[in-house]
Simulated scan of single mutants.
Amino acid sequence: MSAFDYVFLGLSITSSWGNGHATTYRGLVRELAARGHRVLFLERDLDFYAANRDMPEPPYCTTRLYRSLEELRSAYAREVRDADLVVVGSYVPEGIEVGRWATRTARGAVAFYDIDTPVTLARLARGEEEYLTPSLIPEFDLYLSFTGGPTLRVLEKRWGAKRAEALHCSVDPGLYAPDPDAGVRWDMGYLGTYSDDRQPTLERLLLEPARRWRQGRFHVAGPQYPDAIRWPANVGREIHLAPREHRAYYNAQRFTLNVTRRDMIEAGFSPSVRLFEAAACAVPIVSDEWPGLETFFVPGEEILVARSTEESLAILQGMGEEQRRRIGERARDRVLAEHTAAHRAETVERLTREILDARARTTSATA
């Protein structure tokens, strides 16, 4: 197997503060390196992340920070030109210009990695062009999407993507695993940044159950929650948890809650990284309902779906310990079989080879 040269232009790999991109890139890049590939990660040096870097020098790739578009162009044109695959991520600062430059400079293939596909497409439909434009999509050889299902065909048919493939989030089983020595502190916990569209579900499935079940213990971890929120007395709070603390957090819960963004629900087939992290810890997940959920976990056997306060409380108060453990263990088995970072690296490697081989055949045919 030949080794490939990859260049990633992503939002961040050095800081997980306030974003879900860093953990995704870390797992993917680490596994690509483990398979013998060379990876350069180029990250815009933003003050917000500079003050909150929990991995300033990832050990499995070369990481370089740049302060401006001009510096990126002048300092890294050769690396982008010579890479086998350049990957431009969503939410990259000045991402439109970065994407244009990458597609014009690279001699190899160029992919767009959309970690926010439903949000991206909703914005494009409204005419908002923050990091991607409709005219730029067909310039990429590959559109990698966190969202699968029908959205992939929408990307190709409506938006002109040459090839759209699902590259869902994943989990590192070396970092996320059951801890038999962990003491259970909460009946239900939730890990997630505040958002207007998720808050009603959090209210329905966690906060209102906490109000009705005063003996229950609950916890919410995540930043940006408004001061106006009235937290029940039996709901603990933590503003930020670094990724290294996530395993302990999940293992301290009897059940963990998954809440999905509105755009993700509408698109369907959009699992969150928290879903796979919790499952890898064998912690039973209580989730809201969204299209495609059953393609990742079997409802009732590997995951629990709650649509109301009453259903959430019924799970928390009525499920026996043996059944609870069995659901968590089944979810872990499913994740280890299908949704690790190693699985995603294999997909990227396969797609790289297919695209480069197709290019070589086209070149030979026209020579």
Rank of each mutant, 00 (worst) to 15 (best):
A3Y: 06
V7R: 08
G10N: 15
L11Q: 13
T14F: 00
S15W: 08
S16E: 11
N19P: 12
H21S: 15
L32N: 01
A34T: 05
L40H: 06
E43L: 02
D45A: 13
D45E: 09
L46F: 02
Y49N: 12
D54Y: 00
E57P: 00
C61A: 14
T63E: 09
R67V: 03
L72E: 06
A75C: 10
Y76D: 11
A77G: 08
A77R: 13
A83I: 04
L85H: 00
G89M: 07
Y91K: 14
Y91D: 14
G95R: 07
G95P: 01
G99R: 06
W101G: 01
A102N: 03
A102M: 05
T103G: 07
R107P: 08
A109K: 14
T120R: 12
L121W: 10
E128R: 06
T133E: 11
P134C: 04
S135D: 15
L136I: 07
P138G: 03
Y143E: 01
F146A: 15
G148F: 06
R153G: 03
E156A: 12
K157Y: 01
K162Q: 15
R163T: 13
E165P: 03
P173M: 12
Y176D: 09
P180S: 11
D181S: 14
D181F: 11
W186P: 08
Y190F: 14
L191T: 09
G192A: 11
G192M: 12
S195I: 05
D196K: 10
D197P: 05
L207V: 09
E208R: 13
Q215E: 15
G222I: 03
P223F: 04
P223N: 07
Y225N: 05
P226T: 13
A228I: 04
W231F: 00
G236I: 01
G236S: 15
A242I: 01
H246L: 11
A248V: 05
N251Y: 03
N258V: 04
R261S: 12
M264L: 10
M264F: 15
G268I: 01
F269T: 00
P271G: 04
V273N: 13
R274E: 13
R274H: 01
F276S: 07
A278W: 05
A279H: 09
A280Q: 05
A280W: 02
V283E: 06
D288Q: 03
G292R: 03
F296R: 02
F296I: 14
F297G: 09
P299R: 07
G300S: 04
E302Q: 14
E302R: 03
E302N: 07
E302K: 01
I303S: 11
R307E: 15
S308A: 06
E310H: 09
E311K: 05
S312E: 11
L316I: 15
M319V: 13
E322T: 15
R326W: 12
R326C: 06
G328E: 04
R330Y: 10
R332M: 07
D333I: 02
R334V: 12
V335N: 09
A345V: 05
A345T: 08
V348A: 09
V348K: 03
R350V: 01
E354T: 05
D357K: 01
A358Q: 13
R361E: 12
T363E: 13
T366A: 12
